[in-house]
Design a protein around this nucleic acid. Structure first.
Lengths: 112, 112
DNA sequence: AATATATTCAACCAAACAGTTGACAATATT
DNA sequence: AATATTGTCAACTGTTTGGTTGAATATATT
Protein backbone atom coordinates (compact mmCIF):
# COMPACT_ATOMS: atom_id res chain seq x y z
CA UNK A 1 0.00 0.00 0.00
CA UNK A 2 1.58 3.21 -1.14
CA UNK A 3 1.56 6.15 1.18
CA UNK A 4 0.35 9.02 -0.97
CA UNK A 5 -0.11 11.11 2.13
CA UNK A 6 3.61 11.75 2.47
CA UNK A 7 4.32 15.19 3.73
CA UNK A 8 5.68 16.47 0.43
CA UNK A 9 2.62 15.23 -1.43
CA UNK A 10 0.28 16.87 1.06
CA UNK A 11 2.25 20.10 0.70
CA UNK A 12 1.53 20.09 -3.02
CA UNK A 13 -2.12 19.14 -2.68
CA UNK A 14 -3.01 21.61 0.06
CA UNK A 15 -1.08 24.33 -1.72
CA UNK A 16 -2.95 23.59 -4.94
CA UNK A 17 -6.25 23.79 -3.07
CA UNK A 18 -5.34 27.12 -1.50
CA UNK A 19 -6.26 29.09 -4.59
CA UNK A 20 -9.85 29.85 -5.64
CA UNK A 21 -9.10 29.64 -9.36
CA UNK A 22 -7.74 26.14 -8.98
CA UNK A 23 -10.60 25.03 -6.75
CA UNK A 24 -13.04 26.31 -9.37
CA UNK A 25 -11.20 24.36 -12.05
CA UNK A 26 -11.47 21.19 -9.98
CA UNK A 27 -15.18 21.89 -9.63
CA UNK A 28 -15.49 21.95 -13.42
CA UNK A 29 -13.45 18.79 -13.76
CA UNK A 30 -15.67 17.00 -11.26
CA UNK A 31 -18.42 17.29 -13.86
CA UNK A 32 -16.47 16.18 -16.89
CA UNK A 33 -13.24 16.27 -18.80
CA UNK A 34 -12.21 19.69 -20.10
CA UNK A 35 -9.58 21.16 -22.35
CA UNK A 36 -7.17 23.79 -21.02
CA UNK A 37 -9.01 26.55 -22.94
CA UNK A 38 -12.32 25.46 -21.50
CA UNK A 39 -10.85 25.52 -18.01
CA UNK A 40 -9.40 28.98 -18.66
CA UNK A 41 -12.54 30.48 -20.17
CA UNK A 42 -14.41 31.56 -16.97
CA UNK A 43 -11.46 33.57 -15.68
CA UNK A 44 -10.29 37.00 -16.65
CA UNK A 45 -6.67 36.05 -17.04
CA UNK A 46 -4.45 35.08 -19.91
CA UNK A 47 -4.47 31.53 -21.21
CA UNK A 48 -0.84 31.24 -20.12
CA UNK A 49 -1.79 32.05 -16.52
CA UNK A 50 -4.61 29.50 -16.53
CA UNK A 51 -2.26 26.98 -18.09
CA UNK A 52 0.08 27.44 -15.13
CA UNK A 53 -2.77 26.72 -12.72
CA UNK A 54 -3.51 23.53 -14.61
CA UNK A 55 0.13 22.56 -14.35
CA UNK A 56 0.07 23.17 -10.59
CA UNK A 57 -2.95 20.89 -10.28
CA UNK A 58 -1.21 18.30 -12.44
CA UNK A 59 1.93 18.47 -10.30
CA UNK A 60 -0.15 17.85 -7.20
CA UNK A 61 -1.53 14.76 -8.93
CA UNK A 62 -5.03 16.20 -9.00
CA UNK A 63 -5.27 16.41 -12.77
CA UNK A 64 -4.33 13.98 -15.51
CA UNK A 65 -3.75 15.19 -19.03
CA UNK A 66 -4.17 13.47 -22.37
CA UNK A 67 -2.90 15.19 -25.47
CA UNK A 68 -4.72 14.52 -28.72
CA UNK A 69 -3.44 16.61 -31.57
CA UNK A 70 -3.02 20.16 -30.39
CA UNK A 71 -5.63 19.82 -27.67
CA UNK A 72 -4.90 18.91 -24.04
CA UNK A 73 -7.77 17.09 -22.33
CA UNK A 74 -7.73 17.25 -18.54
CA UNK A 75 -9.55 15.05 -16.10
CA UNK A 76 -9.73 14.96 -12.33
CA UNK A 77 -7.74 12.38 -10.43
CA UNK A 78 -9.52 12.28 -7.07
CA UNK A 79 -6.97 10.16 -5.17
CA UNK A 80 -5.01 13.09 -3.65
CA UNK A 81 -8.27 14.61 -2.46
CA UNK A 82 -8.97 11.37 -0.67
CA UNK A 83 -5.50 11.48 0.88
CA UNK A 84 -6.00 15.07 2.02
CA UNK A 85 -9.30 13.99 3.46
CA UNK A 86 -7.61 11.15 5.34
CA UNK A 87 -5.33 13.71 6.91
CA UNK A 88 -8.19 16.00 7.86
CA UNK A 89 -10.33 13.19 9.18
CA UNK A 90 -7.67 12.34 11.75
CA UNK A 91 -8.97 15.47 13.50
CA UNK A 92 -12.60 14.57 13.11
CA UNK A 93 -12.94 13.41 16.71
CA UNK A 94 -12.06 16.94 17.78
CA UNK A 95 -14.54 18.80 15.68
CA UNK A 96 -17.40 16.32 15.94
CA UNK A 97 -17.07 16.56 19.71
CA UNK A 98 -17.44 20.29 19.44
CA UNK A 99 -20.40 20.00 17.06
CA UNK A 100 -22.14 17.59 19.38
CA UNK A 101 -21.76 20.06 22.25
CA UNK A 102 -23.29 22.79 20.07
CA UNK A 103 -26.26 20.64 19.13
CA UNK A 104 -26.76 19.78 22.74
CA UNK A 105 -26.79 23.45 23.55
CA UNK A 106 -29.44 24.09 20.89
CA UNK A 107 -31.61 21.27 22.19
CA UNK A 108 -31.46 22.41 25.80
CA UNK A 109 -31.06 26.16 25.64
CA UNK A 110 -30.47 26.95 29.30
CA UNK A 111 -29.58 30.27 30.75
CA UNK A 112 -25.87 31.25 30.58
CA UNK B 1 -25.93 29.49 9.96
CA UNK B 2 -22.67 31.11 9.16
CA UNK B 3 -20.81 30.00 6.08
CA UNK B 4 -17.24 29.53 7.25
CA UNK B 5 -16.48 27.80 3.99
CA UNK B 6 -16.39 31.07 2.08
CA UNK B 7 -13.77 31.06 -0.59
CA UNK B 8 -11.49 33.50 1.22
CA UNK B 9 -11.64 31.44 4.40
CA UNK B 10 -10.81 28.25 2.51
CA UNK B 11 -7.90 30.06 0.86
CA UNK B 12 -6.45 30.79 4.29
CA UNK B 13 -7.08 27.35 5.71
CA UNK B 14 -5.72 25.36 2.77
CA UNK B 15 -2.75 27.69 2.53
CA UNK B 16 -2.04 27.22 6.23
CA UNK B 17 -2.23 23.45 5.78
CA UNK B 18 0.15 23.52 2.84
CA UNK B 19 3.21 23.75 5.07
CA UNK B 20 4.68 20.81 7.01
CA UNK B 21 5.79 22.92 9.96
CA UNK B 22 2.28 24.20 10.46
CA UNK B 23 0.71 20.77 10.06
CA UNK B 24 3.12 19.45 12.69
CA UNK B 25 2.11 22.27 15.02
CA UNK B 26 -1.54 21.38 14.58
CA UNK B 27 -0.67 17.79 15.39
CA UNK B 28 0.83 18.94 18.68
CA UNK B 29 -2.16 21.10 19.43
CA UNK B 30 -4.51 18.19 18.80
CA UNK B 31 -3.00 16.61 21.90
CA UNK B 32 -3.10 19.62 24.19
CA UNK B 33 -2.65 23.33 24.57
CA UNK B 34 0.90 24.60 23.97
CA UNK B 35 2.83 27.82 24.35
CA UNK B 36 4.50 29.41 21.35
CA UNK B 37 7.96 28.31 22.58
CA UNK B 38 6.75 24.75 23.01
CA UNK B 39 5.36 24.79 19.49
CA UNK B 40 8.64 26.20 18.19
CA UNK B 41 10.91 23.80 20.06
CA UNK B 42 10.91 20.80 17.64
CA UNK B 43 11.99 22.92 14.69
CA UNK B 44 15.40 24.22 13.77
CA UNK B 45 14.29 27.74 13.11
CA UNK B 46 14.24 30.95 15.09
CA UNK B 47 11.45 31.62 17.56
CA UNK B 48 10.42 34.56 15.41
CA UNK B 49 9.92 32.29 12.40
CA UNK B 50 7.86 29.80 14.42
CA UNK B 51 5.87 32.69 15.84
CA UNK B 52 4.95 33.71 12.30
CA UNK B 53 3.68 30.22 11.58
CA UNK B 54 1.51 30.39 14.67
CA UNK B 55 0.15 33.70 13.48
CA UNK B 56 -0.67 32.18 10.08
CA UNK B 57 -2.59 29.39 11.80
CA UNK B 58 -4.36 31.94 13.97
CA UNK B 59 -5.31 34.02 10.92
CA UNK B 60 -6.83 30.95 9.32
CA UNK B 61 -8.90 30.49 12.47
CA UNK B 62 -7.18 27.21 13.26
CA UNK B 63 -5.57 28.40 16.47
CA UNK B 64 -6.90 30.42 19.38
CA UNK B 65 -4.55 32.23 21.69
CA UNK B 66 -4.86 33.20 25.34
CA UNK B 67 -2.23 35.47 26.86
CA UNK B 68 -1.45 35.04 30.54
CA UNK B 69 1.43 37.18 31.67
CA UNK B 70 4.20 36.96 29.14
CA UNK B 71 3.15 33.52 27.95
CA UNK B 72 0.87 32.88 24.95
CA UNK B 73 -1.16 29.68 25.24
CA UNK B 74 -2.41 28.26 21.95
CA UNK B 75 -5.16 25.77 21.39
CA UNK B 76 -6.61 24.19 18.31
CA UNK B 77 -9.90 25.43 16.95
CA UNK B 78 -11.07 22.51 14.77
CA UNK B 79 -13.97 24.26 13.05
CA UNK B 80 -12.04 25.34 9.92
CA UNK B 81 -10.73 21.80 9.53
CA UNK B 82 -14.31 20.64 9.50
CA UNK B 83 -15.13 23.26 6.86
CA UNK B 84 -12.19 22.20 4.72
CA UNK B 85 -13.38 18.64 5.11
CA UNK B 86 -16.88 19.62 3.98
CA UNK B 87 -15.33 20.99 0.83
CA UNK B 88 -13.27 17.87 0.21
CA UNK B 89 -16.14 15.54 0.95
CA UNK B 90 -18.15 17.08 -1.87
CA UNK B 91 -15.78 15.06 -4.07
CA UNK B 92 -16.12 11.89 -2.05
CA UNK B 93 -18.46 10.29 -4.54
CA UNK B 94 -15.69 10.50 -7.12
CA UNK B 95 -12.92 8.90 -5.12
CA UNK B 96 -15.04 6.29 -3.36
CA UNK B 97 -16.26 5.16 -6.76
CA UNK B 98 -12.68 4.73 -7.84
CA UNK B 99 -11.76 2.90 -4.63
CA UNK B 100 -14.68 0.57 -5.02
CA UNK B 101 -13.53 -0.31 -8.51
CA UNK B 102 -10.05 -1.05 -7.19
CA UNK B 103 -11.37 -3.31 -4.45
CA UNK B 104 -13.49 -5.09 -6.96
CA UNK B 105 -10.41 -5.65 -9.07
CA UNK B 106 -8.55 -7.11 -6.09
CA UNK B 107 -11.41 -9.43 -5.27
CA UNK B 108 -11.79 -10.72 -8.81
CA UNK B 109 -8.37 -10.46 -10.38
CA UNK B 110 -9.23 -11.33 -13.94
CA UNK B 111 -6.93 -11.09 -16.86
CA UNK B 112 -6.51 -7.57 -18.29
C1' DA C 1 1.07 26.95 -48.88
C1' DA C 2 -0.98 30.11 -45.90
C1' DT C 3 -3.51 30.84 -41.93
C1' DA C 4 -5.90 29.90 -37.70
C1' DT C 5 -6.10 27.40 -33.29
C1' DA C 6 -4.41 25.22 -28.88
C1' DT C 7 -1.00 25.34 -25.88
C1' DT C 8 3.49 26.00 -23.84
C1' DC C 9 7.71 28.56 -23.00
C1' DA C 10 10.77 32.29 -21.56
C1' DA C 11 11.46 36.57 -19.69
C1' DC C 12 9.83 39.72 -16.84
C1' DC C 13 7.29 42.06 -12.70
C1' DA C 14 5.18 42.94 -8.22
C1' DA C 15 3.59 40.86 -4.21
C1' DA C 16 3.70 37.29 -0.84
C1' DC C 17 6.38 33.87 1.75
C1' DA C 18 9.68 31.83 4.82
C1' DG C 19 13.47 32.62 6.94
C1' DT C 20 17.15 35.63 9.43
C1' DT C 21 18.84 39.13 12.98
C1' DG C 22 18.62 42.72 16.40
C1' DA C 23 15.82 45.65 19.13
C1' DC C 24 11.81 46.16 21.96
C1' DA C 25 7.99 45.29 25.38
C1' DA C 26 6.18 43.00 28.97
C1' DT C 27 6.43 39.98 32.72
C1' DA C 28 9.01 36.87 36.12
C1' DT C 29 12.77 35.82 39.08
C1' DT C 30 16.62 36.77 41.99
C1' DA D 1 16.98 47.07 41.04
C1' DA D 2 19.08 43.96 37.99
C1' DT D 3 18.48 40.15 35.12
C1' DA D 4 16.23 36.46 32.59
C1' DT D 5 12.35 34.82 29.93
C1' DT D 6 8.48 34.98 26.49
C1' DG D 7 7.10 36.69 22.59
C1' DT D 8 6.47 40.29 18.99
C1' DC D 9 8.09 43.72 15.71
C1' DA D 10 10.77 45.81 12.00
C1' DA D 11 13.98 45.51 8.55
C1' DC D 12 16.28 42.78 5.53
C1' DT D 13 17.16 38.64 2.19
C1' DG D 14 16.32 35.06 -1.11
C1' DT D 15 12.64 32.25 -3.16
C1' DT D 16 8.07 31.31 -4.72
C1' DT D 17 3.79 32.79 -6.58
C1' DG D 18 0.52 34.59 -9.76
C1' DG D 19 0.16 37.38 -13.22
C1' DT D 20 1.72 39.67 -17.80
C1' DT D 21 3.50 39.74 -22.78
C1' DG D 22 5.56 38.07 -27.03
C1' DA D 23 7.55 34.33 -29.37
C1' DA D 24 7.68 29.40 -30.35
C1' DT D 25 5.61 24.74 -31.35
C1' DA D 26 2.54 21.82 -33.10
C1' DT D 27 -1.64 20.71 -35.26
C1' DA D 28 -5.94 21.86 -38.12
C1' DT D 29 -8.30 24.18 -41.69
C1' DT D 30 -8.82 26.60 -45.96
Amino acid sequence: MVDYSSSAQLDLVFHALGDPTRRAMLRQLAQQEHTVSELAEPFSMSLAAASKHVKTLEHAGLVRRTIRGRTHYCRLNPQPLSDADDWLRSYERLWSQRLKALEELLRHPEKE
